[in-house]
Amino acid sequence: MPHSSLLKKLTLVVIGMFAFAFALVPLYDVFCDVTGLNGKPSLEVATESNKVLTSRTVDVSFTTHSQRNAPFEVNSRQYSVNVSPGEMVEVKFSAKNLSSEARVMQAVPSVSPGKAAKYLHKMACFCFDQQPFSANQEVEFTLVFYVDTELPEEIEELTLSYTVFDISEATASNTVAAKQQAG
C-alpha cells in the first residue's frame, strides 16, 4: 500500500476516534436509558397511564438537596406516598428562593434504585424547565407522575431525589451571548 493511502486511512481513524469521544456523550445517555442503569430518569413528558394495577402498592419517597450552596429550599409536602402501579399521583413541592436577588433554579431528578428509573413516568415536573425566581419568592410546584405497571416485583419502594442547582450565571451569560449574536 502506498504511504499516502495508508496515511489517509490512519488519519481517518484518528478523526473518527476524536468524533467517537463526543459520540460517547449521547451514547452514554442512550445506554443508560436502554439498560436503566445510573438511575437517570427520562426528562420527556410521559403520556397518561391507561391501566391501574391494584394488586400491589409501592412506596415512593422524595428527597431534595441543594448543590454548591444553591440558595433554594425545596421540600415535598409529603415525605412519601403509597401508590399502585399505573395510578396517577400529584405531589406538591414548596420552593423558596433564600437569596434577596432574582435567581434561576434547575432541578435534576434521579431515581434510586437505578433499575427503577425507567419505570417512573413524570407528566408534569418542575425539573422539565428552568425555574426563575424573584428575590425571596416562594412558589408551589406540582409533580404529576405514575409508576409503570411493568415495575419489577422485587422493587417495593423507590426514591425520587432532586438535586437543585443555581444556574443564574449560566443563563445570564447565555442571554448576553444571545444578545451579542442578535446585535
Binding site: 481513524v13 484518528v14 476516534m17 476524536f18 467517537f20 469521544a21
Partner: peptide, 9 residues
C-alpha cells in the same frame, strides 16, 4: 491512534 483522540476529546 485509537485512544489519544479520545483523550483529546
Amino acid at each position: 491512534i485509537a485512544v489519544m483522540p479520545v483523550l483529546a476529546g
